[in-house]
Design a protein around this nucleic acid. Structure first.
Length: 919
RNA sequence: GGGCGAAUAGCUCAGCUGGUUAGAGCGCCUGCCUUACACGCAGGAUGUCGGGGGUUCGAAUCCCUCUUCGCCCACCA
């Protein structure tokens, strides 16, 4: 085996990645087979995760690293557990984001997209995407992602574009997609409308301007209104007061004069106005405020648009005579300053005060969003939300951590229609054609060249669909939908888990669930796992633009993918953020780096000792030949397996929905990582491997037993760690004796609890560990120099479970504790000895000549005092009737056991103190 | 303005439905190049579990309240 001959002293992550990743690909390790799913012709449970598609031109950041590591751990775990595991990778065309990048590029050439024209511009974007696109997926490979790259999808693929059209047309035909004329969020920089979710709130301190509108024909009388956006005054068409407001009752029906322009507008009564707030009078600008729009509709008011799409002051739709010459063409914020100046000069400005409010910004470019009246396509969401809401309420879909479930439910209950049209060129063009002859609007799965009703000339809608309108179909569009019989769709839908960040719960997760029910008639997955955000040590979200980011590829280069993965998984509690220090990668990633190195060294040593000769299968070993250490480590492995299983699973609900008892179980990857780590490091390496050194060296039958157990246990440990550390585990696993070519640990069986804990003597090795620890402690306490050997005598008590067998462990204890150990000396040593009780047997360390007796007495007395205090508390508790009556029997019993043990320990300690130190 | 979450060792965090003397990693202290590993080994120190009140035989864990952070949602001009 070439692997075994080549065993570098230090592990080289880059070399492992270069060796194994291509091999995995070549061997099809990550490729799922539809026919093996039990929903097709096979027998395996499918386990599917669809990767939240990163932006096609995106660059990997730590958030992706975290997100994909979590998914990979789950997929690798299930693949080993025997599922037909499929992880579908892919990218999103990211309409606004990608178009923005290319627009910036051509801006450097002094051009806009309009200079290029639609077709050339789209080609230009396609060029850019084909150059840089998908590099993020390549970067994921260096993290070890075991995605099925043969199924890589892209939202603009012809197949997925077909799905998008199908979805749109179906909704259109059901009347769930409609054309709406209303105030939407408009980004004056991106020149497109945005959905509610894409217009993000940011708290800002603005100003509230109070302005007087003179009442027509009543000199001296005026109505005072307040506004944060005085420039929108130019679009005012009314002043609204509450119908019950006495102050203004007589004004309703009269008109007031808009300052600056002198236009007369009516005073109307509408419940929208809160008489308690401000002056109780509100200016109404229907084209530039969603609430005012509603008011305008109720009162059939005109709706002049006083800004251009770019956000400069213009007499746009229905606004003739409204924008003064001096303001035209000015940016809205500049115009605001100018307006205030003009108002001040005219005496209409009453006062200006600071005002805290939330302002919406474009989620892609952070420009302040302008509410603007326009025609857009909307999806009627309420009917779609109903089953999606019910799914979570009934436990068909669970959302972890639990608290996000409430957020989801609240959003779903108050869902608003979704603006899906974008005034962009990059994306799926809306499949709607307008007939120039008869005016008919047609939505169509196929491109139309003439009107289906009159045969007249048609023109396709200019807009494209929101990016999220393609990604909400992702769990089934990537599997072949709308072809209902697509093998992948049948084999792998519904998928299992969706792993993503809470930020996109509404953008994506909620919509994916709605789409799943609407188009597939069933849930898209049974679990949503929302992991935390990657933050720096100041708890600021990591972002390239903030300069506090960590490039995962740097980390991979420095410490390896395994180290990155382990660190990330171990550091991520359910529902907590991952904090890393971008200024100190060494420290941030030390948990993974240290453990990766440790694991490599364990492997190197253990496998070198074991050698390459064939090793007996554990099943062929006579159980009576197993040492106490063997039994112990086998039981510990079982326990580690059980802990890992409990932390990760269950992989899926038992039936259609989650039972209450399992609803919150599993997905605790940090516990899984910790369980595996502590087993490998603190038990396997620190104790078992140490304990086998002499046995291996001695050779003979016992060496064979030690080899067999070592190999078995290490194999199990590697398997447990494979999901989180795929490279090192593969490299070490390949070097196990008896490995044949073509196997990969990635497809080896997940270990199972073999019941060793129930085997006789499974915990007896604890006695050896205690003995060693005690001696080490004494060495350290008394500064016994490393070179000198301590004498230890074990005095077994009749009936002690260790009494018969300490002899066989004497050498081992001596070696681990650097002592000479003898067994069976009949009597305790009396005064100058340190004796410790181990299950009624005594461990006696003669202290004469080694130890300062006075100091030892002091130490023992304080130890005794502490023990007595604790014991007192314990006995008081046991004497408490209420405790004995009310606490569970097992707890009481446990406390009694403990009291017995402590009492014995106390007595032993007390007699020792008496003997050593006198009264 | 509503809703939710967090506060545990110097740092980052575990501690799941209340029940051993509250744990881990990193850092720190002491001693070690012990024939796999100094990215290591052995030993060790450090916590009025944010403050206050309550429920309970028993509270880091449950309830109330206060303080400080964070997140989500929201049409008060």
């Amino acid at each position: 085996m070439p692997d075994r001959d080549n065993f570098p002293a230090t592990h080289d992550p880059a070399a492992l990645a270069a060796e194994y990743y291509p091999r995995w690909l070549a061997d099809g390790v990550f490729t799922a087979h539809a026919e093996r799913s039990d929903r097709s012709s096979g027998t395996r449970d499918p386990f599917t995760i669809v990767m939240p598609p990163p932006n096609v031109t995106g660059v990997l950041h730590m958030g992706h690293g975290l997100n994909n590591t979590v998914q990979d751990v789950l997929v690798r775990w299930r693949r080993m557990a025997g599922d037909e595991a499929l992880w579908v990778p892919g990218t999103d065309h990211a309409g606004i984001a990608t178009q923005n990048i290319v627009e910036k590029q051509i801006a450097r050439e002094g051009l806009t997209r309009f200079d290029l024209g639609r077709e050339p511009f789209v080609r230009r974007v396609e060029d850019w995407v084909s150059q840089t696109g998908g590099q993020i997926l390549q970067q994921l490979k260096s993290l070890g992602a075991s995605a099925d790259w043969t199924r890589t999808a892209y939202t603009l693929d012809p197949e997925l574009s077909r799905a998008v059209r199908e979805a749109f047309v179906r909704l259109y035909e059901k009347g769930l997609v409609y054309r709406g004329h209303r105030v939407i969020h408009w980004c004056p920089r991106c020149l497109t409308s945005l959905s509610d979710e894409e217009a993000e709130f940011a708290d800002e301190t603005g100003k509230l301007y109070h302005v007087r509108y003179a009442v027509s024909g009543e000199p001296g009388r005026a109505v005072e209104v307040a506004t944060t956006r005085p420039e929108t005054m130019l679009g005012d068409v009314a002043v609204a007061v509450n119908p019950g407001d006495e102050r203004y009752r007589d004004l309703v029906g009269k008109t007031v004069v808009l300052p600056i322009t002198g236009i007369e507008i009516p005073v109307i009564a509408d419940d929208y106005t809160d008489p308690e707030f401000g002056t109780g009078a509100v200016k109404i600008t229907p084209a530039h405020d969603p609430n005012d729009f509603e008011v305008g509709q109720r009162h059939a008011l005109p709706m002049p648009v006083i800004m251009s799409p770019e956000g400069t002051m213009q007499e746009w739709a229905d606004a003739v005579g409204r924008v003064p010459e001096s303001l035209r063409g000015l940016d809205r914020f500049e115009a605001r300053e100018r307006m205030v100046e003009m108002l001040r000069e005219s005496g209409a400005l009453v006062k200006v005060e600071p005002h805290e409010h939330a302002v919406r910004h474009c989620y892609r470019c952070d420009t302040v969003v302008e509410p603007r009246l326009s025609d857009q396509w909307f999806v009627r969401m309420e009917p779609l939300a109903r089953p999606a809401l019910e799914a979570v309420r009934s436990g068909e879909i669970r959302i972890l951590p639990e608290r996000w479930e409430g957020v989801y439910v609240h959003w779903m209950e108050n869902i608003r229609d979704w603006n899906i049209s974008r005034q962009l060129w990059w994306g799926h063009r809306i499949p709607v054609w307008y007939c120039l002859a008869c005016g008919k609007t047609s939505a169509s799965r196929e491109d139309l060249d003439k009107c289906p009703s009159c045969g007249g000339e048609v023109r396709q809608d200019e807009d494209v669909l929101d990016t999220w309108f393609s990604s909400w179909l992702w769990p089934f569009s990537t599997l072949g939908w709308p072809d209902e019989d697509a093998p992948d769709l049948r084999a792998f839908y519904p998928t299992d888990v969706l792993v993503t960040a809470p930020e996109i719960l509404f953008f994506w997760v909620a919509r994916v669930i709605m789409a799943g029910y609407e188009f597939m008639g069933q849930k898209p997955f049974h679990s949503v796992f929302l992991h935390g955000t990657v933050r720096d040590t100041n708890h600021v979200r990591m972002q390239k633009s903030l300069g506090n980011g960590i490039d995962p590829l740097d980390v991979v280069e420095l410490f390896g993918a395994d180290a990155l993965r382990f660190t990330v998984v171990a550091g991520l509690g359910v529902g907590t953020d991952l904090t890393l220090d971008p200024t100190d990668l060494e420290r941030s990633f030390s948990p993974g780096r240290n453990f990766a190195t440790k694991l490599w060294n364990i492997g190197r040593f253990l496998l070198t000792n074991v050698g390459s000769d064939p090793v007996s299968a554990l099943a062929d070993i006579d159980r009576s030949s197993l040492t106490r250490a063997d039994r112990w480590i086998l039981a510990r492995l079982d326990s580690a397996i059980a802990e890992c299983d409990a932390a990760l699973g269950p992989a899926r609900p038992d039936g259609d929905r989650w039972k209450e008892s399992q609803l919150r179980q599993g997905m605790r990857l940090n516990e899984y990582a910790e369980a595996a780590r502590s087993f490998v490091w603190n038990e396997l390496a620190d104790w078992y491997v140490e304990s086998t050194k002499a046995r291996m060296q001695a050779g003979g039958a016992d060496a064979e037993v030690a080899r067999a157990v070592s190999v078995h246990v290490f194999d199990g440990a590697l398997r447990l760690l494979q999901p989180v550390m795929p490279f090192i585990t593969e490299a070490l696993w390949q070097r196990l004796p008896g490995r044949s070519d073509g196997e990969s640990i990635a497809t080896a069986a997940w270990p199972r609890d073999a019941g060793w804990a129930a085997e006789a003597g499974a915990t007896e090795f604890e006695g050896v560990r205690d003995a060693v620890s005690v001696v080490r402690q004494i060495r350290s306490d008394y500064n016994i120099p490393p070179g000198s050997v301590v004498e230890v005598r074990i005095v077994p008590a009749p009936g002690s479970k260790f009494s018969a067998t300490y002899e066989s462990e004497a050498d081992l204890i001596g070696r681990l504790a650097r002592a000479t150990v003898t067994v069976g000396v009949a009597e305790a040593e009396g005064a100058a000895a340190h004796a410790i009780l181990l299950d009624r047997s005594q461990l006696v360390i003669p202290l004469a000549g080694v130890v300062d007796v006075a100091r030892e007495c002091e130490r023992l007395r304080s130890e005794l005092g502490e023990l007595e205090q604790q014991l007192g508390l314990l006995q008081a508790r046991l004497a408490n009737e209420n405790f004995v009556k009310r606490a569970p029997a097992a707890v009481v019993e446990g406390e009694r056991e403990k009291a017995k043990e402590w009492t014995a320990r106390r007595d032993a300690l007390a007699s020792k103190v008496a003997a050593l130190c006198g009264a």
